[in-house]
Write a protein that binds this DNA or RNA. Structure first.
Lengths: 170, 170
DNA sequence: CACAACTAAGTTGTGCACAATGAGATATGG
DNA sequence: CCATATCTCATTGTGCACAACTTAGTTGTG
């Protein structure tokens, strides 16, 4: 896939020779597609690493948030991860069924549900400690590049979201 | 949430002052999560931009591949996009139902199915030309950074995939 | 107080991703 | 030749994402 693949009838390689062109249907998606591919590759690695913990990557993200700060509302988890209740509600039910969290309606505001780690959920943190080093090793980037990349990603997401929210421009 | 919250047993705030530290549960995911967020933000923008074309982002990617090179096998599309038939088969059926592609079994090898653009599918390219400029504007990165980022993403995906394929290391 | 506006969470429906499995076609070795 | 392995695609099942909608609770106003 990184080389130009031949179909059975023609060779139209060499399309990538137009570096200044950011508006073509060829080049446009090379960054977006690269990002999309990299994101899927990382999720795939997490799938392998998280299999012993019986967690998916989004579930692991929720656990990370809770390990940092227990007993949050669904709304707060959503704000932390940019996920809405349509994604979180079923995910949290699965975590509850796995015995890692509890879900209880708040007495003071019956609309909201507070998510708390169970003892098992809190204990799982120890096993999770083994994961970050693998991720670091897998990415194989030196810390400076890594830090810069994180900043760039944050800015990129912010910029893209701003653009989208003010769309259409008219 | 953007301030440092304490866990229930240690205070590991200020970890971002430890650039060599790639192994904590706090820091690890800041890059992976940033990537995941950026990828979703971009997909979300594509959703907005692609709505008039009645395409999803993965469908658009398939169309991009076909616009570059028509009449490919499912297997070839899969190689180009790193997607398997479990994802592509239903997606291609939806594109067929939309009238953008045709799917026909090859006579010379009854196992394979060749995907071809219809006239409508080929014509849609003109409308798609309007999309890349929006993406470029939304990302707001200068071309040099953009090119570097693309290279980094490719290397990252490759590195992560290599690591995952040779896992467990034993 | 009544009632509209708002909010938090859940539900429904669509469409990826991906593992696992299966069916049918083709290639290969004995 | 024929048994078996391999290949290509499709199917099934699970779990995100996300839009659109619903339900129930809360708040603000006249």
């Amino acid at each position: 896939m990184m080389e130009c693949y031949r179909s059975d009838r023609e060779e139209e390689c060499m399309t990538s020779q137009d570096p200044g062109e950011t508006g073509s249907l060829l080049l446009d998606d090379q960054l977006c597609f690269g990002l999309y591919s990299a994101s899927r590759a990382i999720t795939s690695l997490y799938r392998t690493l998280l299999e012993p913990l019986d967690l998916t990557y989004p579930q692991y993200l929720v656990m990370l948030v809770l390990w940092e700060h227990d007993a949050q509302q669904v709304k707060e988890l959503g704000a932390a991860l940019n996920l809405d209740s349509g994604t979180l509600s079923p995910l949290l039910k699965r975590l509850e069924k796995s015995g890692l969290v509890t879900r209880e309606r708040q007495a003071e505001d019956e609309r909201s549900v507070r998510i708390r780690l169970t003892d098992d959920g809190a204990a799982l943190r120890a096993k999770a400690e083994e994961i970050p080093p693998h991720i670091g090793a897998a990415m194989g980037l030196d810390p400076a590049v890594l830090t810069g990349l994180r900043t760039t990603m944050d800015r990129l997401a912010a910029s893209v979201n701003t653009y989208r929210e003010s769309f259409p421009p008219a």
